[in-house]
Amino acid sequence: MAATTVPGRTAAPRASRAGAVVPTAILLLGALYCLLPVSWVVVAATKSKAELFSTSTFVPGTGLLSNIADLAAYRDGVFWLWLANTVLYAGGGALLSTAVSTVSGYALAKYAFPGRNLIFTVLIGGVLVPAVVLAIPQYLLFSSFGLADTYWSVLLPQILSPYGVYLARIYAAAAVPDALLEAARIDGAGHWLLMRKVALPLMLPGMVTIFLFQFTAIWNNFLLPFIMLGDDAKFPLTVGLYTLLAAGANQPALYNLIITGTLISLVPLVALFLTMQRHWRTDLAGGALKS
């Protein structure tokens, strides 16, 4: 028996040839649905103003470079500023968020202490609070300290990530063996050293996952910067593109700028996503599902 029943997911027995067609077709339809708008924007961004409305939808045009040049010239290159701001918010915020989540998750997974479950529930419960409930008072509080419409007002509220803490706890529980901590502790390592030298290296793959999720979440966030910021030199791409749309919706002449801007705003995240696939897939809440 052991020799013949190879695990089902590698073996494709006889029946599969016929049986594979329908599932494969369904998945390919799903893939097509998901790729359609992205491929549309790639093609549309290559079209000049005239081509956008005249040529057939999926025929590439000749205007990509002039579209990019137009976008770069729009309001003295404010678009590049939006891109740089987004990198700053998402990169800085995700780094800090990963650090806070990892340390918290490690403490929650590997220490028993009074209030552990309460603290965990409270931190995780943060995910339930609607963003607007927070965003308005956050705006008022920041503005009473003179910090509204600053980089801080977008950066600071996005450091604490309930989902990050949740993933870190799961990951620490799965990846850091108690026996190893115990051994290091008997050798005289203190709490700080235990975490830094024993736990953190083991948690590194999990940290990459948390970083990626938070980076994406901040990159994609619209509401918080929309509420906090008034000065368009501090906008991230999402708010910038929205203002571009709000200004250009009734002027088809501006559509090229919006389409090209949308395309460029996708490139960094899609690149990150395609290169870091291993971390998106395997580590995602992996521990949670094994328990």
Partner: peptide, 28 residues
């Protein structure tokens, strides 16, 4: 289900919109 062809391509393609900001998705 193990019987599917091009599973990797489909998986990546279907997950791809996750990398698209909500505002950009709405514009698209």
């Amino acid at each position: 289900s193990a019987r599917v062809r091009l599973a990797r391509f489909s998986r990546v393609a279907i997950f791809l919109p996750y990398a698209v900001p909500g505002v950009a998705a709405t514009l698209l």
